[in-house]
Nucleic acid binder design. Structure first.
Lengths: 193, 193
DNA sequence: AATGGATATGAATATAAATTCATTTGAAGT
DNA sequence: ACTTCAAATGAATTTATATTCATATCCATT
């Protein structure tokens, strides 16, 4: 297995990202990925164990970068409400900036978890951020004390993912980040008059 | 193609449901489905055009039944708040009662839409229910007038789906329907004190 | 410019699994 | 009991594509 930082390694990863996003992991072929990356079929096997491994590395790589950004966004401000706002803004911005990643995260992570249990789990990390923020908000006295936190976390993450799915299905025709503030507003205040 | 209401047709559909849920559509084989359904491999092709068609029919069938139940649940009561509550309760109950369907809906619908555009679209129908309910609530004066309805719909559906995904991942170890009322409470009142 | 080792190639191979079809079974009608 | 035909079977065929590997290319070192 050749060194991970080479130009070809990255070219294959990004090429794979494009093909997986377009056709889905299972319909994507090695030849298509090779072509997209500008290398020969065999070259891929110098850098990756097999097709599953390409998806695995892709997700590991993207997840790591994503979470560094999320961590900064949350740490960049004080107060639960502003932290939550930054978290959602960052999430939407990053997915908007890498639509292939958005598509792959939303559709292939489940399959991957069947083949590699130790895959970096985006939801687990994410839910931990949310726990941290919600508990902070309760300590500050700005959030309700009677929240069932396990449910609130899923409620928040599920809604963001729903928004992203819609944006992906609409082929990215509108500005996803503009949804951040109205969405946080719904989390906080609900829909009742 | 033999008639749809026969015993074998249903046996194959339910068998396929079990195998698709366990292994995912792409890893499932015709032989496994045949075995699960108690028929020979070739028999499947008397009732279905091909493997894609099995998934297609499965989703059409389940979606139709699901929406009849949803329609009744919404019509069974007056007032936006109670309608919304019934909708969510019904959704969670139906998915809890058919876990294979829950898994398949949450993971294979996207693939299917690539191969058959006219697949009954669960989210489209669902979002129409929600529009109906939200507009009613606004007319009654019980819901905020300044809601961006397109966003609210995704917010509601995304959160329910998130809750269901978690329940599926937890292997159905707890009672999903118990989430309905706390969840609706979050939709209505939000998390702010 | 000759050598050697690292890297890349893509045609050939292996494999898995979807689909077909010649054959068999079972049941209804005579 | 015989005939017919729809329904069912599962082994054989076909197809697709992931993976391998013998060969070629590149490039640093002398």
């Amino acid at each position: 297995m050749l060194k991970e930082k080479s130009e070809k390694y990255s070219a294959i990863l990004e090429g794979a990202g494009a093909v997986f996003a377009r056709l889905g992991f299972h319909k994507a072929t090695i030849s298509q990925i090779a072509q997209e990356a500008g290398v020969a079929d065999g070259t891929i096997y110098l850098y990756f164990k097999n097709k599953d491994d390409i998806l695995y590395q892709y997700i590991q790589f993207k997840t790591t970068a994503f979470f560094e950004k999320m961590r900064s966004a949350v740490d960049a401000t004080d107060g639960a409400e502003e932290k939550l706002r930054n978290l959602i803004r960052c999430h939407l911005r990053e997915f908007q900036n890498d639509r292939n990643m958005a598509i792959i995260f939303q559709s292939e992570v489940r399959y991957l978890r069947n083949i590699a249990l130790q895959v970096k789990d985006i939801s687990k990390w994410y839910l931990d951020f949310l726990t941290e923020i919600i508990e902070l908000g309760q300590m500050e006295g700005h959030l309700r004390q009677d929240l069932f936190i396990g449910l609130v976390k899923r409620f928040v993450l599920g809604a963001v993912e729903g928004i992203i799915n819609t944006w992906v299905a609409a082929e990215g025709k509108y500005d996803l980040t503009a949804m951040a503030d109205p969405l946080v507003d719904l989390y906080l205040g609900g829909i009742r008059k």
